[in-house]
Amino acid sequence: MARLLDALRLQIGLTGTKEGCGEGECGACSVLLNGELVNSCLTPLAHADGTDIVTIEGVASDEQLHVVQQAFIQCGGAQCGICTPGMVLAAMSLLARTPQPTEADIRAGLAGNLCRCTGYMRIFESVLEACRHLPPKL
């Protein structure tokens, strides 16, 4: 058995995915697996077989940051940055499911991602800011 987290960080060298707790509590290791948010520290590598995985390294396109990343910078949603990759992916997963989230939706969507620096309000603001820049749903 191996963890998806270790395959990403140690074998492929994608160190944007962080390890905070290693037990599912903090969300620093969040990635999208077939579009769904998972904690890669609790995901056996075997379960990633044949799936499509997005880590934080795959979020920006070319030189253009994703609107969620842009919003985190603009609103001061990141300080030390350890939680940020997971927060950005959790926010993207939320916005894919709920493009116009309420504050309660944002709190629930990010509930599994802990931050020790920002106090969360700026993170929630970042997500709201990102909504304003998302292309309207067709």
Binding site: S93, L110, G112
Partner: peptide
């Protein structure tokens, strides 16, 4: 279900 863990735990 909605009160179990966070979204990542609910997905798995």
């Amino acid at each position: 279900a909605a009160e179990t863990g966070g979204i990542a735990t609910q997905n798995r």
